[in-house]
């Protein structure tokens, strides 16, 4: 049981600091005080349990509408494995993704910019991983979108990802990006992560082997959630 709470602290440079001055709204939303140490208890070692029965099987495919129509844009698969810090596959992990459509607009009431909505694309998907920790989504490549309170600043194409893992401690939300996009280097949110290698881990790899010949591109992104069950080495 105590193995469940042997979480390592997050490596500092591999996570974005709360205050990231180029990302303007962090200036009023990042706490001024440092965070307190939280004793690791059963509260943190547990978390909501999901099974594959919790999510309808068709939610892995964002590119097909409820009426069977195909969304506009470049079809793609997003494929990868979720593991813990010991490389063990994370089973029964709920992954939720959401993204803008091919024109860079979200199907969201607050996104009112003058890019077209696609009636065949809502841009939300969910799956729960099986024993092998593998996930796969079919979707379309999202467009870039401008952010109003900056001068000529566009978010690079990205897909938002929400992950639960096996406990409260492994709960996290992130975004992934496309390889080679020049907007990646200008992105205040991606560049807010201090270490280049940690930023690179959020950039998907182009991988034809997870695409479908003549039909859809393939991109690969492996994700690592915090936590382990292995007994720490004594020595």
């Amino acid at each position: 049981m105590t193995d469940d709470i042997e979480y390592r602290d997050y490596a500092k440079g591999a996570q974005p600091p709360y205050l990231t001055p180029n990302y303007k709204s962090t200036k009023v939303r990042s706490p001024n005080k440092p965070q307190y140490k939280l004793p690791r208890t059963l509260t943190e070692a547990t978390g909501p349990v999901f099974t594959q029965d919790d999510v309808p099987a068709d939610e892995w495919d964002l590119s097909t509408s409820a009426t069977g129509e195909t969304a506009l844009g470049q079809l793609m698969f997003m494929d990868g494995v979720i593991t813990d810090e010991d490389g063990r596959p994370m089973a029964n992990t709920l992954i939720e993704i959401w993204q803008a459509n091919a024109a860079g607009r979200y199907a969201h009431a607050v996104d009112t910019r003058d890019a077209p909505l696609d009636p065949n694309f809502t841009g939300a998907g969910r799956i729960v991983t099986g024993e092998d920790g593998h996930y796969r989504f079919k979707t379309i490549r999202p467009g870039a979108y401008p952010v109003p309170n900056y001068e000529n600043y566009w978010r690079p194409p990205h897909i938002h990802i929400s992950l639960f893992g096996r406990s409260f401690m492994s709960r996290m939300i992130t975004q992934c990006y496309f390889p080679g996009d020049p907007l990646n280097d200008e992105c205040h949110i991606l560049q807010g992560i201090p270490e280049a290698v940690a930023r690179d881990r959020l950039v998907m790899k182009f991988d034809p082997s997870v695409g479908v010949n003549g039909h859809a591109l393939g991109y690969r992104l492996d994700l690592v959630l915090r936590g382990r069950r292995a007994t720490p080495m004594v020595g």
Binding site: A11, A14, E85, D111, S162, T174, A198, L202, L223
Partner: peptide, 15 residues
């Protein structure tokens, strides 16, 4: 196996 970095949830997640 280093934990993946977090990123903001952003404003458009509701749906």
């Amino acid at each position: 196996y280093i934990p993946t970095a977090g990123q903001t949830v952003g404003p458009f997640y509701n749906y």
